[in-house]
């Protein structure tokens, strides 16, 4: 391998490693924090970091979705949910359970051991790159004629799946309307349960 080829690979490795390190750090910060506002913000940062990681893995479509949904919408919805419930996690004294620690260590070791059998990243003989994936890459220009193969798979080859996914989104919206939206259809004003205690916050 020549010098010109190793330099970008080393840069990629450095970027990947620093992104993964930051992901782990953010995850630990989320575990430690009791302030739910901080946890929600950290989860947005986590999504943004994983979106960058997906970009570095050349999965731009996934990265786009992660940035829009994970870092955007879900952060906002978590904030809304936090306003409806509590701002702070209840303090609790964690009990030390050695058996749990042993189980976690064993499962972690087993997962790491299993990861040795994975094909290397970008291996052209990996099963994921051979059977159906190769088929899509070869057939999309002939059968669909769309430059973005992800769109071709999503909307044409797996169109029925995407129809189901759209229905899932629709159903989720319907469930939220049924659970939270009493009265909103008519007036759109905030509604309080008659049995609930009055709001304690001073306006």
């Amino acid at each position: 391998m020549t010098e010109a080829m190793t330099a970008p690979i080393a840069a990629n490795l450095f970027i990947d490693l620093s992104l993964v390190t930051m992901l782990v750090l953010v995850a630990f910060a989320m575990l430690r924090s009791r302030q739910l506002f901080a946890v929600v913000m950290l989860s947005g940062i986590y999504s943004l970091l994983s979106a960058s990681f997906f970009v570095s893995l050349d999965a731009v479509d996934v990265a786009f979705t992660e940035a829009a949904v994970g870092a955007g919408i879900s952060t906002i919805l978590m904030l809304g949910g936090m306003l409806l419930t509590a701002r702070q996690e209840k303090a609790h004294a964690p009990k030390r359970a050695p058996i749990a620690f042993v189980v976690v260590l064993l499962v972690g070791a087993a997962l790491i051991y299993a990861s040795f059998d994975f094909p290397a990243y970008g291996d052209r003989y990996a099963p994921a790159n051979n059977s159906i994936g190769q088929e899509y890459v070869e057939r999309t220009p002939k059968e669909i004629g769309v430059p973005n193969i992800v769109t071709a798979v999503l909307a044409a080859y797996r169109g029925f799946d995407t129809m189901g996914e759209t229905t899932v989104i629709f159903t989720a919206g319907l469930a939220v309307i049924l659970l939270l939206g009493v009265g909103s259809a008519r007036g759109g004003r905030a509604v309080r349960d008659r049995n609930a205690p009055p709001p304690t916050r001073e306006e």
């Binding site: 919408i73 906002i76 919805l77 809304g80 949910g81 306003l83 409806l84 989720a172 919206g173 939220v176 309307i177 939270l180 939206g181 909103s184 759109g188 004003r189 905030a190 509604v191």
Partner: peptide, 10 residues
């Protein structure tokens, strides 16, 4: 819609 319903309660 989900955002409206979450935010409209408070």
């Amino acid at each position: 819609t989900i955002f409206y319903h979450f935010a409209g309660r408070e």
